[in-house]
């Protein structure tokens, strides 16, 4: 199939979000509409990974009404879902959204304007706006800004996985498997380290927001409390002096 370089797949991954998925899809459709108004072609897909019954039922009826394809998987691992979505997608660009989060309406169009400038760009929103169990705001740093120091990645994750990038980027650097049992997690952080090490550039789309719902305990919080570490990545080695 011929891929249009400026087409975008909007991948929504769901698991046990239930009705929260409604607001998520609403925001995705609004962002898609805004992007379409700027001339971008979008296609939305819902991935249900080991989804509970209410989520599955709700997602399917919603998808039917909205004419959105649904793909069910049995990974229990968001990384694997994302990898599959990238392999399956027929578009040049891909953006991910978790089933309980929301995008700002301008996200896709503004992120695409940046992504199209350079295939090596990975675009993040300007901020994560947490709501629900937290009211923090996390500002993202543009890798090309003066204040960015790559050594920060050794200590913390300045971005997350809900980014927009070229499909080839995801295919060249798939997400690693989630495996809490071995004590290694933080797949998003690891992916960011790997892509930085490979020369990709993490950019920020000013004025765009991801609204991140904090429900009970997030996966990252779980990871922290379970004493897990990020997998090995070249950035963890001290640079030679």
């Amino acid at each position: 199939m011929q891929r249009n370089r400026s087409d975008i797949s909007l991948i929504i991954t769901a698991h046990n979000e239930g009705l929260l998925l409604g607001a998520t899809i609403n925001s995705a459709l609004a962002a898609a509409k805004e992007a379409q108004s700027q001339g971008f072609v979008t296609e939305t897909t819902i991935y249900l990974d080991r989804a509970d019954r209410p989520t599955s039922e709700f997602a399917r009826t919603l998808a039917k009404d909205l004419d959105i394809p649904v793909i069910e998987t049995d990974f229990g691992d968001q990384g694997k879902v994302r990898n599959l979505a990238c392999q399956t997608a027929s578009t040049g660009y891909i953006a991910f959204l978790d089933g309980d989060d929301l995008w700002s309406e301008n996200w896709i169009s503004l992120a695409m304007q940046i992504a199209l400038k350079n295939k090596m760009y990975i675009v993040h929103p300007e901020m994560n706006w947490f709501f629900g169990g937290s009211n923090n705001i996390l500002l993202k740093v543009d890798q090309e800004s003066e204040s960015f120091d790559p050594s920060f990645l050794r200590a913390g994750n300045p971005w997350d996985a809900l980014c927009l990038a070229h499909r080839d980027t995801y295919l060249a650097t798939p997400y690693c498997n989630r495996d809490i049992a071995t004590g290694f997690a933080y797949e998003d952080w690891h992916w960011n380290c790997e892509t930085v090490a490979k020369g990709y550039v993490h950019k920020v789309a000013k004025g765009t927001i991801h609204f991140k719902r904090r429900r009970e305990i997030s996966q990252n919080t779980q990871a922290t409390s379970r004493k897990v570490l990020i997998r090995d990545t070249p950035l963890l080695l001290y640079p030679e002096k």
Partner: peptide
């Protein structure tokens, strides 16, 4: 408002 290298929880560690 948290930002890496300004007031991020991982800044002390970094």
């Amino acid at each position: 408002v948290l930002c890496p290298q300004l007031n991020h929880p991982a800044d002390d560690l970094h």
